[in-house]
């Protein structure tokens, strides 16, 4: 079987994978990083969003072998010890999660947004989240969370 190597949350990792192994399967099943969720499995819902070389991407629609050599950040890589990332903290403060299933993808997408557009308007935030579905329909507080975090992240 081919070997894949990448950096995940700052740590070099490698493993043997079948070519058909998806990035999300490698993260969850081999690295046991189960914070990245699988929802729809067809790149619609966004529960599986991670950062690939700093850009948000859906890990259910990428092969692990395709990111050989890349730097991956997952939801587990955000907090600094006990201190949550400002985006995570804002989701907690604003009741930005209900059942929590979509939350890892929402947080990872939102961080990419604030990085690229620190002063995003509410409309821009809602447009950006087109690719992230919350089945609890808790969008209102998700948007509020992102607005607060954008302020705290120096936006």
């Amino acid at each position: 079987m081919p070997t894949v190597s990448m950096t995940v949350n700052g740590k070099p990792v490698s493993g043997e994978v079948e070519a058909r192994t998806l990035l999300v399967q490698f993260l969850r099943d081999q690295l046991r990083l189960t914070g990245t969720h699988v929802g729809c499995d067809t790149s619609q819902c966004g529960a599986c969003v991670v950062h690939v070389d700093g850009e948000s991407a859906k890990s259910c629609t990428m092969l692990a072998l395709q990111v050989d050599g890349a730097a991956i950040t997952t939801i587990e890589g955000l907090a600094n010890g006990e201190t949550l990332h400002p985006m995570q903290e804002a989701f907690r403060n604003n009741h930005g999660l209900q059942c929590g299933f979509c939350t890892p993808g929402m947080v990872m997408s939102a961080i990419d947004l604030v990085k690229k557009n620190p002063k995003a308007s509410e409309t821009e935030i809602r447009e950006w989240l087109e690719g992230n579905i919350c089945r609890c329909t808790g969008y209102h507080n998700i948007v509020k969370s992102i607005q607060e975090a954008a302020g705290n992240m120096g936006g």
């Binding site: 966004g46 850009e55 948000s56 859906k58 997408s109 990419d112 950006w128 087109e130």
Partner: peptide, 9 residues
């Protein structure tokens, strides 16, 4: 086209 996370790839 799709959404931003799919356009990134």
């Amino acid at each position: 086209v799709g959404h931003i996370q799919t356009r990134n790839r």
